[in-house]
Design a protein around this nucleic acid. Structure first.
Length: 421
RNA sequence: GCGGCUUUGGUGAAGCGGUUAACACACUGGAUUGUGGCUCCAGCAUGCGUGGGUUCGAUCCCCACAAGUCGCCCCA
């Protein structure tokens, strides 16, 4: 118990940190190119924020939140996603005052109480983007482009982009009703799950694994046929811009997003080999959220990607960068007296910008050489009895095996000039 | 929250109801007492996820729990 991290959490060990840094660097560079600025919001918020922002009745809010009362009797929730927080920060700090659109990105931990699986942790990491204040379909396309660009810049292949429009508060109720009218007399033929979906989210019946292949499914009304004129136009424009930017996508009229705030554009990027957790990125437009949270009516688009899933995909495709630790010099000391001198040499080398190391355990010289070899040291600096007497150090090139004696005074500058080009 | 599968040392793993739990890698030490990468030798789980139970006896049988994993749900 004591030596086990809580279920659904995971240590990111030194060997993995290289990969995480690699991904985070890509995020920062792609966001910079697209003009998105980083924002960091608190890891917990007032519970009410998520109730309002994400919506009561969603799975995330109803059964996946880490909610607790703090010592001041406030109801606090560990953020299960970051859009609500970013919008809150946008309103609180009046970021709309800047005049132009506000384009933000974040990287950070999110928390959801769910049954863990590979690619689904209780504490997990998301990179996401929010473009606030632009109604243009170009903003939708820009955000999608950024997501694709990011994933492709990592080297990922075989990703599938699905696109849909979920309409707006004007046309979506009409679609819901159309669906319910269509399914009402077929409830007997639908599975148990679908029967329970009928009232709550009839759109989900469309992508039911059990019923999806039933012959009548293909006759079900499509949302894209029920969109109002404005939504229709917007959706076509998004497709046009994507096509012109040479992004391939498939229209998926059954793609619905689970959070209440989505309007119009919805998209998802999948990497199929990840199985049940194949959704690597997902997002869309949420024109109603900012007003819902007390701001002026403001359109917005965004997406989030699950970094654990991105890392899994990278691992599957063998794209992880190797962590090759480089060591310029390893100091080898023969005895205790030499060891003391070695330590001060170590300090001088490091202060001069050299990557250096030595053994503190008083092991045999042979063992120290083995260690130098294992650490891939460029030079072994040997301090034996003889060298101590002469105030010198034997410098051995671990590749060639060549070695020569150099005075203690000159050794640091010698190594510096050898190591730096 | 539901169902299936899995759980042996640092790692990959073999194993059987009954005396020393294979093997490999890694690690540590050694092969004429100042020199590595090859080779050779030696050491390295009183322990087989945790807790119960069955049995004369269980790592191997049963139950519970935990963790992991696959699928469902949901989502990133």
């Amino acid at each position: 118990m004591l030596t086990n991290a809580p279920r659904g959490t995971k240590d990111i060990l030194p060997e993995e940190v290289t990969a995480w840094n690699f991904v985070e660097e890509k995020i920062r560079s792609v966001c910079k190119r697209y003009g998105f600025q980083e924002i960091r919001t608190p890891h917990f918020e007032h519970t009410e924020l998520f109730h309002r922002g994400i919506g009561e009745g969603t799975d995330v809010v109803d059964k996946e939140m880490y909610t607790f009362e703090d010592r001041g009797h406030r109801s606090i929730t560990l953020r299960p996603e970051n859009t609500a927080s970013v919008v809150r920060a946008y309103l609180q700090n009046k970021l709309y005052g800047t005049g132009s659109a506000t384009k933000l990105f974040y990287i950070g931990e999110m928390f959801r109480y769910d049954r863990p699986q590979a690619g689904r942790m209780r504490e997990f990491h998301q990179f996401g983007v929010e473009s606030i204040g632009q109604e243009s379909p170009m903003a939708d396309a820009e955000v999608i482009l950024l997501a694709v660009d990011f994933l492709e810049s990592l080297g990922l292949k075989d990703l599938q982009l699905s696109l849909n429009s979920v309409g707006c508060p004007k046309c979506r109720p009409m679609y819901r009703k159309a669906l319910q009218d269509f399914f009402r007399d077929k409830l007997g033929e639908l599975c148990e799950d679908c029967n329970s979906r009928f009232e709550r989210s009839p759109m989900r019946i469309l992508d039911c694994k059990v019923d999806a292949d039933k012959p009548f499914m293909k006759d079900a009304p499509k949302i894209t046929d029920c969109l109002c004129e404005e939504c229709q136009e917007h959706f076509h424009a998004v497709q046009k811009y994507l096509t012109e930017a040479d992004i391939s996508f498939t229209l998926d009229p059954r793609l619905v997003r689970g959070l209440d705030y989505y309007t119009r554009t919805a998209f998802e990027i999948k990497y199929a080999p990840l199985g049940a957790q194949s959704a690597v990125a997902g997002g869309g437009r949420y024109d109603g959220l900012i007003e819902e949270m007390g701001g002026a009516p403001t359109p917005a688009v965004g997406f989030a990607t699950g970094l654990e899933r991105v890392l899994l995909a990278l691992t599957k495709q063998g794209l992880l960068p190797e962590a090759n630790a480089e060591l310029d010099a390893f100091i080898i000391a023969q005895d205790e007296a030499a060891s003391a001198m070695a330590f001060s040499l170590l300090a001088r080398l490091r202060r001069a910008g050299i990557t250096a190391s030595m053994d503190f355990a008083g092991r045999s010289m042979k063992a120290q050489f083995k260690q130098a070899n294992k650490l891939n040291a460029r030079f072994a600096l040997i301090l034996g009895e003889e060298e101590c007497k002469e105030s010198a150090v034997t410098c051995k090139d671990m590749q060639t095996g060549d070695q020569r004696k150099i005075s203690l005074e000159e050794i640091v500058t010698t190594i510096c000039s050898e190591v730096k080009h």
